[in-house]
């Protein structure tokens, strides 16, 4: 478990570098959303989640559910950094017969809790895992990461009601609020705001944070549940493509991937933080 936000920052940088190399190699992927969620995943996997890469299915593990399954790139890269899958396997991303499909598959990849890719599925499943823990008076927790555009799926709001109804304070929803979806800004496509008020009205305890500040993320995730008897909602304000100037905050990078030349510039921008000399 990392306690120093600077170490988390180095981890996140390493994940970003590996991720971009992987996306360039595959020629496919979701660059923008991977980079917006990287700091959230790095913080969860290296400082928060009670998980064991040697026993990925241990019964009392914390559950992390990636509802925005199209960002499998950042999940695989994080799982590789955390020791769930070999780092070398990242080269197989989306290649024929690779375990690393464009969207995650729990039956193939250790550490994946449920298959996602269709949007609006993660939160209902997370309600189920959180309920199972409650039934058993267990202490493990459920963290689920959704996109923001994804919240246009009605199934999320069915689940939002249920989480509060069942007082699931062992459940933490993180919304990757990068304000962009596939085609355009969320607010031009289908209004989400006032987003925090919506979750509060549904009975959740809500905090809005900088989704790229590791110290803030660490403090936030360590203080759940925000209120006893209520599910916690973290609206993480992020930028699609965070970390690379020409990718950041641009809708066209939703599923564009860097060319060889773009990768070189991106890696220069990210800089070698000395975390892993192999990179």
């Amino acid at each position: 478990m990392l306690n120093d936000p600077r170490e988390l920052c180095a981890r996140a940088n390493s994940i970003r570098r590996r991720n971009l190399i992987m996306l360039n190699h595959a020629g496919l992927g979701h660059t923008g959303g991977d980079l917006s969620a990287t700091d959230i995943l790095a913080t969860l996997y290296f400082s928060i989640l009670n998980i064991d890469p040697q026993v990925p299915d241990k019964a009392d593990r914390d559950r992390f559910i990636l509802s925005k399954g199209h960002c499998s790139g950042v999940l695989y890269t994080t799982l590789a950094e955390a020791g769930f899958i070999p780092l070398a396997e990242l080269d197989t991303f989306m290649q024929p017969l690779s375990r690393l499909n464009g969207h995650p598959n729990r039956n193939k990849v250790p550490g994946v809790e449920t298959n996602t890719g269709a949007l609006g599925h993660g939160l209902p499943v997370a309600i189920g895992t959180a309920l199972a823990a409650k039934f058993d008076d267990a202490t493990w927790r459920t963290f689920v990461l959704t996109g923001d555009g994804e919240l246009q799926e009605g199934s999320n709001w069915e689940a939002a009601m249920a989480a509060a109804h069942y007082k699931l304070d062992d459940l933490v929803l993180i919304i990757d609020r990068n304000r962009l979806q596939q085609g355009d800004a969320t607010e031009r496509t289908m209004h989400l705001e006032p987003l925090a008020d919506k979750w509060r009205a549904f009975g959740w305890s809500v905090r809005e944070v900088d989704g790229h500040d590791h110290a803030v993320l660490l403090g936030t995730f360590r203080s759940v549940p925000f209120e006893l008897g209520k599910p916690s909602c973290v609206i993480a304000h992020t930028y699609k493509g965070q970390g690379v100037s020409f990718i950041r905050d641009r809708a066209e990078w939703h599923h564009r991937v860097p060319s060889k030349d773009e990768l070189t510039i991106a890696l220069e921008e990210l800089g070698d933080n000395g975390h892993d000399p192999a990179l």
């Binding site: 019964a59 559950r63 809790e113 449920t114 609006g120 599925h121 939160l123 209902p124 499943v125 997370a126 309600i127 189920g128 895992t129 959180a130 309920l131 199972a132 823990a133 039934f135 058993d136 459920t142 009605g154 199934s155 069915e158 689940a159 009601m161 249920a162």
Partner: peptide, 16 residues
């Protein structure tokens, strides 16, 4: 809420 119902069932199965 049928979508939520089936998703919750899958989560309950994940939880044993």
């Amino acid at each position: 809420a049928e979508q939520n119902m089936v998703g919750i069932a899958a989560g309950l199965a994940n939880g044993g």
